[in-house]
Structures are given as structure tokens and as C-alpha cells.
Simulated scan of single mutants.
Amino acid sequence: MVWFRAAAEGTGNIPTDRQVVFTPNHVSFLDPLALTALIPYNVLRRQFAGLKDPAFANGFNAFFARLAFAFPVDPVRRPGIGLAYGSEVLRRNRSLIWFPEGARSRTGRLGAFLPGLGMILAKHPCLVVPVYIAGTRTAMPPGSLLIRPKKVVVYFGEPISSKKLQREGKGEEPLERITDALKQRVAEPGKLAGEER
């Protein structure tokens, strides 16, 4: 990366020969850039990303979002559209990047996971790679347009099937159990990064 120092841990956990869903935490506008910069190209070229509406706020942003195979996700105003896109991506046996919190954390702490991805994975079982991104909030704090030369580390967790997440998690419905277990899996590397969760 040109503006900040990005490194990856756990790249051996990235499957290169099958469909996968990456599920990163979200604290900065830099998160998608850091993540996609560190995913191997042969995996990235099969990847679609669900991004919040600011990525499509104007024609310039939308142009580059489309080049990155991104589609709009708005969990508040139009939740059904993003869920339909995500479901269709998995139905077509393509891979997906999905930010389960639905928006950037205001505090920097891991926020609640919305049920959308749990719904998609309950309907389209798939291999999941939990991802934790550390350092992007320092490199580009909320409200800042400047990128600071700070270290960013992307932790790729061990892949796990959505069916196993469903068995591990707590909740009455499959989507609740998937979401619960997934949040625990994403939080684990945060502890390794020394970030309080």
C-alpha cells in the first residue's frame, strides 16, 4: 500500500480453490482497501463485495466500486436489495466480502453483527473466513480525509463452514446462531492484536 503500511497474518487460511465469504470488522473507510490489497489476486478476481452506500454516493465513487465488483448494501433503508445481491452471488458459486456490522464502528470496538449475513449463509451454506482488521482507524480516523502512515494488519482466521457456525452459536434461529458464532470468531484476532473487545 502506498499511503500506509499493510501486512497480513494468516494468509495460509485463505482457500484458493473454492467459494468463500470473508467477514471483516469495520472501523474505517480504509478497511476495504487494506483487505483487497492483501487477498491473493486469483481469489480476489472471483470476489464480489457488499459495500455501504457511500461507495456509490456519486458517479466517480460508483465507477470504481463497480470496477471492484462491489454492490450496494444499505441495512437501514434498503436491506432487501443487499441481501438479494449477496444471495445471488453465492447462488452463482462466486465468493463474497461482507462487513457483518453493516457500518463503521463509532467507537472502534467490534459492534453488533446484523442478521443479514446469517440469513444468507443459512440459505446458501458456504465456507467462511473471519477477518479482523487492525490499525485502519488510526491510519484514517473517522471524519478525516487524510491517510496517516500507520501500520495496518489484516488477520485472516481459520476457515469454517457456515454449518459449523450454526452448531457453535447461541440463539433460537439458524441465522442467530451463525451470527453469534461468527462474531466470536472475528473477535479472536482482535485479542491477539492487543485491541480490547
Rank of each mutant, 00 (worst) to 15 (best):
V2E: 12
F4Y: 11
R5V: 14
A6K: 04
G12W: 03
N13A: 08
N13E: 10
I14C: 09
P15W: 03
D17F: 07
F22S: 03
T23V: 12
N25L: 03
H26Y: 01
S28P: 07
L33N: 09
L33H: 04
A37R: 05
L38V: 12
I39Y: 05
N42D: 15
L44C: 06
L51D: 08
K52D: 14
G59A: 13
N61K: 13
A62W: 14
F64L: 12
F64N: 11
A70K: 01
P72T: 00
V76A: 14
I81T: 09
I81M: 14
A84D: 09
Y85D: 10
G86S: 14
S87C: 06
E88F: 09
E88V: 10
E88I: 00
N93H: 09
N93D: 06
R94W: 04
L96F: 01
F99T: 01
P100E: 08
E101D: 05
A103D: 13
R109A: 08
R109E: 09
L114S: 11
P115S: 03
G116W: 02
P130Y: 08
V131W: 00
A134I: 10
T138W: 11
M140G: 00
R148E: 09
K150S: 13
V153T: 11
V154D: 00
F156N: 08
S162G: 07
K164T: 10
G169M: 01
E172Y: 10
K183L: 05
Q184P: 03
